[in-house]
Amino acid sequence: MTTAAYAYSTADLADAAALVCFGCQPRLRPLGIPRYRDLLQRYRLDGPFRGAADAVADGLELDVIEAHQVEGLILHPREGTWLSYRLKDHPKLGVKDRLVLGLAHVAIAARAYPTPADLEEESVKRTSLTEVDDFLRRLTDRLREAAVDADGLAVPHDELQAAWKVYAKLPPSRPTATGRLSESSTQRVIKEALDWLVEQGMAYRADELGVGHYRLAHRFRVQVREAAASAAFTVLCDLRRAHLAEED
């Protein structure tokens, strides 16, 4: 880029920043906000403007994932940057709490989009607390069944406590005196995860389908596809490589 002349007017830059600003508020819907809708349209059609908006996002340490007509500008904060959220920073959660909450997130995604093809397909998925919990419990049951030897007896436990045991140990749902879910149950943790997604504009409550039902928005699928799944997969591969190196 030459230093002699700026290609963008200040108004363009303000517009680009405004679009990124809209994108930082994931619950805003462009169809309800004319300025957002116009900026989004401009982003989709106007190459130089897109460059400016991308640059603004880049400066804010954000990646633009998609500009969706209905969902708006979908942004992903780079890991550890100022707009990212980390469960680790949560003062109240211990390792196991974080594990169960993290598993709930993965399970919600895995339940809705089990295969890579599901991540490509634009569709609204429905899910519920019991469905996600049952899904995870089926997986843990399968692992429990696999943990027996030829005689059909439980194998002696090794030192490593597997993640699935932590989940399987917790009760699925325990009503309290007031008829809500108790703190220790896994469905309560799944509810926490889904409510967080609602707050982040990734899911909607679907109370008309019954208590504890949700709809997962397109935004969630894109976020999982472009950011979460690959990030987790990369770390998994690193871990596996490290384990293999240890064994050698």
């Binding site: 598993l103 997130h105 406590q161 982040q200 976020q223 979460a228 990030a231 770390v235 871990l239």
Partner: peptide, 20 residues
Amino acid sequence: GVEDAEAVASLFADAAGGPV
């Protein structure tokens, strides 16, 4: 194991959340 799984799962949860 619990430690490794926690690292991966919370990374997923963090990344799925979008900007805060």
